[in-house]
Design a protein around this nucleic acid. Structure first.
Lengths: 168, 168
DNA sequence: TTAAATTTTCAGTAAATATTGAAAATTAGA
DNA sequence: TCTAATTTTCAATATTTACTGAAAATTTAA
């Protein structure tokens, strides 16, 4: 496989994989492109390379900046904005994990808490099962969340990190 | 919040959450319904409760059976098939993790391996960066996959599991 | 076997999501 | 200041994905 072909295939596949994980294809592809490109790119570079519109390129870049896995770079004597990707795999994987935790775990916790708090004592078998499952899900989700916090944010994360690497 | 309201909200939210994780909404909702229902349900029960078509209900159930987080149950003297969900949260979370690992990690590994194997020595700076990133991604993905295997399948999983719970 | 009950499939349609492109807003050099 | 370069927004459109419902296939009891 020659380089241009390999590059295209990588970007394409990364996009597809992104979709399966609930990440927009263009966003995943912009990340892929920046990831394998040594020098910073402008919006126009990205548009041209991926054959996407200015609007799409702009929104994708914004999202990646929000997630903290792409950085702005200014180039002396050029008014355009340049972008580079965070190249350390573990770093960006953890960042994405953390963002997704905030966006997706917290709403579940809110829901479960709300249901658990405002409910009257369960009467029927059906209601009992419901309460039980809500309680278990709550415990589970908390454990996951706490684990994520430790891993992503706390000083203990380092140790846990080492343990994980030991096993992996 | 009264029970029917809480139930509906739970199912609704679970569906939305599923979408964000790349899981079809109906599938997530069927799981949610079965999860909080003590007795086995038929396809018709599910259709009625979630207001979805027979086709949709059938496909969703099949998918959940494939993932191994919903089981068939036969009821004496009834020709219909009944379904129950795996109720142990950790159990089904790990099962889903394992399935997704197979479906999503392996293709990446295949791609990375293919690129890494069939490439000529990198010449330009661009090609060198590409090679480097592919190599790093490969290492990372392997670590993740191996970790997942340990956690999901191997006897070492138990130990790792305990460590994780300790931290969480 | 036969036929009613049940499950599965899938073409057509609906709904959700992503993308475009041009206008509006912003920025920064002259 | 003004204005050209650049970025951002967003209504319109395209694309993808999900869902329906009825026909076909399968199953099982008699």
């Amino acid at each position: 496989m020659r380089y241009p072909e390999a590059k295209e295939k990588f970007i394409e596949t990364w996009g597809t994989l992104g979709s399966q994980w609930g990440v927009n294809k263009s966003i995943a592809q912009v990340q892929a492109l920046l990831l394998i490109t040594p020098e910073p790119l402008t919006t126009d570079d990205i548009m041209k390379e991926l054959k996407i519109s200015r609007g799409n390129a702009n929104m994708s870049i914004r999202q990646l900046l929000d997630w903290g896995i792409v950085y702005k770079r200014s180039v002396a004597g050029d008014r355009k904005e340049y972008f580079v990707a965070e190249k350390d795999v573990w770093k960006w994987a953890l960042k994405i994990g953390n963002v997704r935790k905030q966006r997706e775990l917290n709403p579940v916790l809110d829901l479960l808490r709300e249901i658990a708090e405002n409910k009257e004592p369960a009467k029927t078998q059906e209601e009992k099962e419901f309460s039980k499952q809500i309680k278990e899900l709550n415990a589970f989700t908390r454990q996951l969340g706490s684990l994520a916090d430790k891993l992503f944010l706390s000083p203990k994360g380092e140790m846990l990190f080492k343990i994980l690497k030991m096993f992996a």
